[in-house]
Each structure stands twice: as C-alpha cells, then as structure tokens.
C-alpha cells in the first residue's frame, strides 16, 4: 500500500554511499524493518492524540453543537482539586498494586511449576491459559454470577454457602458492611484472569536460559536457592518486567471488568479512575474536554511509572 512506497523512499534517502557494504545493507534492513511499524503507529495516533490534547484545554461536549471553548488549565485544575478523583486515584493505586503484585507472584510460581516437563504438562499449561482468553466483558458478567450469594458457586466453594453470609459485590459479610471487600472481589478476578499472562511470558524467559549456566552452577555445587537467585531470576527479569509493565498499563486503563461486575459501587468503593473516566467521557455525559484532561493526567502517571520500570529493565539487562 501507500506506506510501502513512502518507506522505501525514506530508506533510499538514508543510505550513505560511503559506508561499507555490510554497514549499508544493515542500515537498509533496519529502516525496512522499523519504518512500517512507526508509520502505522503515527498514522493512527497522530490525530487522536493531538486532538484530545487540544480538547483537554477546552470546555467541550462531543455531543453538543457548540465549538470548544478555550479554558486554559481549568480542567486540569478542577481534576487535581477534586476529592472524588483523588479517591479514584487511590482506589486505582490499590487495585493496580495488589492485582499486579499477585499476578506476578502467582504467574512466576506457576511458570516455575510447569517448567519441568511431565506427562501432560503441555495440555495443563494450555488449560491454565484459558482464563486469559476470555473476553473481559464476559468475565465480568460471569463472575457477577459466580459471586451471587443466591445462585453463585463462589460462596459455596469457599465454605460460606450459608445464605446471606457473604456478598462480595455488596461488600457485606453477615449483613455488615466490610470495607474493601468489593474491591478485593474485583482484584481476585483480575488476578485469576491475568496470572496466566505473566506465567506464559516468564515461562518463555525460563526456556531461553542457557543450560550451561546451570551446568556451571552444578559443577560449583551451588544450592537451588543460589541458582534461583543468581541465575533464574536475573535471566528472566527482562521478560518479567515487560509482563509487569504491560499489566500495569492495562490495569490502570481497564474499566470493562469493573463496569460489568460492580459498576464502580457500592458507593465509590470500586470506582477506579478509568471507570470514572469512562463515566465522564460516555454514559450520557460526553464531557470530552474534561475527560481528555483526565486522560492526559492518567497518561502522565503511566509514563512516569513506565519510566521507572524501564530504567529497572535496562539495569537488569546491563547487569
């Protein structure tokens, strides 16, 4: 398509005639390999990104016929001084922290467990991946059914089958409100769904560890703990960090699961910042200017967190 011609002309223009033969072809290959991706990303992100950046400084409703009114930083100021939003950010923080931490631990442990081959290990590993393959909308819907104290399975499975004893979604136990129970319910589902993701990435990392490292350790009679700490972990770390990085980004943005299960309730207990964002951007409100400003604040937070990870990642590779 069009991109191909653009990209090949770019390639040609960048070729430096005085370079050595290998050097030159390397350069061409590099451009050939990278530019299709970059061009596609730029084509699809340029307009939405800058348009919403502009809107974030305006008062604008996508559904109103009136043009955007320039506000300056008013949207940002309103957001940063709104107690509701600070609460939403705190909730999101808890949500991301707990779900990503648990996914990492469980995913890592699972990967270590299925690493050694045993009869049927391929089948079981594939089965463990199934939760991740479901659509988040369906997952939200079904866990609402699972948690139902009336006809859901969850309470029975954990031995709280007696009627009215536990209502996760309502954050109630024995008809008394229990703080954060609904949030825990949502985190549990997220962990259930995405631990396999971490597992698969870690597993790929584990499989790529050269055997000679372990052989050398075996010759030195190193303990398994030493092997784990000094060989396994550092070798897996880059892929593990990528897994954690993507899970963090996704968890900060995700709203469909929570929307389907709790709608952000009860009260504001599970109102994640992404849920709040969806509410102001859609659901009849369509406050596009305000929502864009909020999205950019989320973007800045995500960038900051990603930078921390990436710095760590680079250090992990440097080591």
């Amino acid at each position: 398509m069009a991109t191909a011609t653009v990209e090949s002309s770019v390639t040609k223009s960048r070729v430096q005639p005085q370079s050595a033969q290998r050097q030159l072809s390397d350069r061409a290959i590099m451009n050939l390999f990278i530019w299709p991706t970059l061009l596609l990303l730029i084509a699809f992100n340029f307009f939405p990104l800058f348009y919403s950046l502009y809107l974030s400084f305006t008062n604008y409703r996508a559904t109103a016929t009136t043009a955007p009114v320039w506000l300056g930083i008013e949207n940002y100021a309103n957001i940063l001084t709104s107690p509701d939003l600070w609460q939403a950010f705190t909730t999101s923080g808890k949500y991301v922290l707990f779900s990503v931490a648990l996914q990492t631990i469980i995913g890592f442990a699972l990967a270590m467990l299925v690493r050694g081959k045993f009869r049927g290990s391929g089948l079981i590993t594939t089965l463990i991946l199934i939760p991740m393959m479901l659509s988040p909308v369906v997952v939200g819907l079904f866990w609402k059914l699972m948690y139902n104290p009336n006809f859901g399975y969850f309470n029975y499975l954990i031995g709280m089958g007696q009627e009215g004893s536990l209502d996760m979604i309502a954050s109630r136990m024995f008809n008394q409100p229990v703080p954060n129970l609904a949030l825990a319910a949502v985190i549990l589902v997220d962990v259930w769904m995405w631990s396999p993701f971490v597992m698969l990435l870690v597993l790929s990392g584990l499989n790529a560890i050269p055997d000679y490292l372990y052989e050398a350790a075996a010759i030195d009679r190193a303990s398994s703990w030493f092997q784990f700490w000094h060989i396994t972990l550092p070798q897996v770390k880059p892929l593990l960090l990528i897994a954690v990085l993507f899970r963090t980004i996704e968890a900060l943005k995700s709203f469909d699961l929570v929307m389907g299960m709790t709608g952000g309730g009860p009260g504001n207990q599970t109102e994640l910042v992404a849920v709040y964002l969806y509410r102001v951007a859609f659901l009849g409100q369509f406050r596009s200017g305000y929502a864009s400003a909020l999205a950019y604040i989320i973007l800045i937070i995500v960038i900051a967190i990603s930078n921390l990870y990436i710095r760590n990642l680079n250090r992990a590779k440097g080591a």
Partner: peptide
C-alpha cells in the same frame, strides 16, 4: 442535556447510603 452529570451524583450517593451503608 446535562442530566447524566446529575445522575452520576445521585447514583453514587444512593449506592453509598443504601448499599454500602454509609
């Protein structure tokens, strides 16, 4: 036109009082 903003307020506060018991 801004009914949804008003609705968000009632939804949150009713849910807080009636379901969450605050």
């Amino acid at each position: 036109p801004i009914y949804a903003q008003l609705l968000t307020v009632t939804q949150t506060n009713f849910s807080k009082f009636i379901v969450e018991g605050q």
